[in-house]
Design a protein around this nucleic acid. Structure first.
Lengths: 127, 127
DNA sequence: GTAAGTAGTAAACTAAAGGTTAGTACTTAC
DNA sequence: GTAAGTACTAACCTTTAGTTTACTACTTAC
């Protein structure tokens, strides 16, 4: 069952809203690549991060980082020494996405196979 | 860990792609409301469905239904009797979204509380 | 025959997301 | 002092998502 069956209309609306909030938090083109870059290359500075994530522009990186900071996924660390150094890093809170991303990845992988299978099945038989 | 740590760059890219495919399949403004409407009101005809989902236009409903049919979530049943009757219904495959939607709803609900808590905490102390 | 319903599609629009180019203010290396 | 780097922001443009309004072709009830 897609969403456990809620009993009241309020519960149903709340469940829908919660799912949509979650989708919004990880949705868009670049949030996952940002998380992935920080996860497997560690904390990075702005330009470093831009180079890590192929194709992202400074403008978009900047806005994504701000949203993700608001959502608590990212910490913007400022060292106010001789040259100010700004470093972005994942917070422990970002780890709470584990289940969500795990479920999405698993379902997505299976779905990809299913769709590919369908196309191959429709096209291949006579060959 | 957000995404179990893959060992190769290929695995990492594949995992990211899978997550993005999944997000695409359930993303957008209306796919979840459509699923919810069919889930709790049962199979419905086009205009019926449009009335069930407050605010959706015929054009958008039409395109959402087509995409969801391609993804295998929905079956378009045609009874070619005296008046042709078209009915939309969820397929068993739509149920495979259970884990994904469950994880999203749970995380989303918790996140909503966290964010609300933060704002209240920031604003309320002196009062 | 006309009013209302079914199952949509077409054309034109607005809004939101994202991309491109350029520029700021500052620092460090040569 | 000039070239290159850091950490961005501003202005503008394109693309995509979603909305609005109207329309078709067909059926059923009165």
């Amino acid at each position: 069952m897609p969403l456990e069956k809620p009993h009241t209309a309020q519960e149903c609306t709340a469940a829908l809203g919660a799912v949509q909030d979650a989708l919004y938090a990880v949705g868009g083109k670049w949030k996952l690549p940002v998380i992935a870059a920080l996860r497997d290359r560690g904390p990075q500075r702005f330009n470093e991060l831009q180079r890590s994530i192929k194709g992202i522009s400074a403008r978009v990186l900047s806005t994504e980082l701000k949203q993700m900071e608001l959502n608590g996924f990212i910490h913007r660390k400022i060292d106010t020494g001789a040259p100010v150094v700004v470093t972005y890093e994942l917070t422990p809170y970002a780890d709470t996405l584990g289940n969500v991303l795990g479920a999405l990845r698993e379902w997505g992988a299976q779905h990809r196979n299913k769709i590919r299978g369908k196309i191959t099945a429709e096209v291949s038989p006579p060959f």
